[in-house]
Design a protein around this nucleic acid. Structure first.
Lengths: 228, 228
DNA sequence: GGGCCGTGTTCGGGTTCGGTAAGGAAACGG
DNA sequence: CCGTTTCCTTACCGAACCCGAACACGGCCC
């Protein structure tokens, strides 16, 4: 089994200037992030709600909803996804207001794409908390993120890379229901329109390998979750 | 009579230039933080270990231990106290290296003290973690949007997807009366003029499953609401 | 008290959704 | 270059669910 690095997750980029969007996308992708691009504020808000990215990089001056408003609405609805503003407005007051809105960082153009990536990583490091790669246990299933091993009822289970990432993602928050889109975004780094059955197939595969200790429950019409 | 704002906690400031140190101390104190100042890296490391501040603001160019080294040693010893670098070294590479060392932010001189404070607050907000998305409770009914679970009088209730969405929509604003059109629009996504009894049927279904704890009240001629 | 309107309730058809199996493409390793 | 593993797509089927119609019930107004 190959041990390729697990995906770092999906970053939502909302930026209307194609040149900048491409640049940021390139550097984020090069660093292992999946990137989903939206070009206006309203679509960005919808995407944030639908895909639940690990972080949002927002331009402030946007068609439709301004980035600041997008951030404010997310926070209002209890969404604390990390937000990094990326903007040409280089004014002390703007920066302070941006940060007080609940943003995690504020980067002004012209900017270094490498630094932006470093700042995204810094924020995510903080979100993840101290690296506590303790084995997670749910029911009769144990999952060790560090060794990338899984056992069911004490017996080792051989999962492929994707299968492991999927199970790890679900077990990170037991009880939490993930939609298929969220899983595609979080595990695969995609943001597909819809319609694919890929997640289902992999869930079935994991279930089969886990055998009786089938911790994954399906929530019809919504998605999947593991028992709490 | 002044009311002391609750202390925001202690910030460790390691800075050898007195002018800057005083400035930062002033602004942090004005914002409700306690500040402990050290003038060289070794004393700073000792203070960090001893005082366990909520955050560290570190100059990089320091007598004794450089700030970068201070940060590195903290992280090596499993100390993930937030670190913000405050430095005259304004070079892309320096900033990236600083962030990769495990710092949370990197501010270059000359800087706005207000912005620095805003950044300290942003980092601490992130550390505190999101105010947990707690289940909504109305009467004897609890509803957890994340887990998509419902309990009535403590017992778990199995709702279908539509039933859950309907109840969640009503419980989002207890006391508020929703018309059938509003519910069709909000839960189903339709924009039908009127005429169907779909909402009624689902309300009945939810009521039946909730049993005695039937929080849904009908407002004759208007629509439905849950008790406040 | 009698009609009337709005609501509660039951029930079956049609549709959607998810489990499953199989095949082809891509990646990996030798 | 070839064999193997893994991944993604497609198609089919059974089951769960949604919806609408039809009927029963109970206030409300006169």
């Amino acid at each position: 089994m190959t041990v390729d690095a697990p995906h770092r997750g999906l970053v939502l980029l909302v930026e209307d200037e194609p040149a900048i969007a491409d640049l940021v996308r390139l550097y984020l992708a090069r660093d292992g992030f999946g990137v989903h691009l939206e070009r206006d504020g309203d679509a960005g808000l919808a995407a944030a709600r639908r895909l639940r990215p690990v972080a949002c990089v927002l331009d402030i001056a946007l068609p439709g909803l301004p980035g600041t408003e997008l951030c404010r609405r997310l926070r209002e609805s209890g969404d604390w996804t990390p937000v990094i503003f990326l903007t040409a407005r280089d004014d002390e007051v703007d920066r302070i207001v941006g940060l007080e809105l609940g943003a995690d960082d504020y980067v002004t153009k012209p900017f270094s794409p490498r630094e932006l990536v470093a700042r995204v990583r810094a924020v995510l490091r903080r979100v993840a908390g101290p690296p506590s790669d303790q084995p997670r246990i749910v029911g009769a299933v144990t999952l060790d993120p560090d060794r990338r091993t899984v056992t069911a009822a004490g017996d080792p289970v051989q999962l492929t890379s994707t299968e492991f990432d999927l199970l790890a993602h679900l077990m990170a928050r037991p009880g939490r229901v993930f939609t298929r889109e969220e899983l595609l975004a979080g595990v695969w780094g995609y943001a597909v329109p819809a319609g694919t059955r890929t997640v289902d197939v992999h869930v079935a595969q994991v279930r089969a390998k886990l055998g009786l200790a089938s911790v994954i429950r399906t929530h019809r019409g919504v998605g999947y979750a593991v028992d709490a």
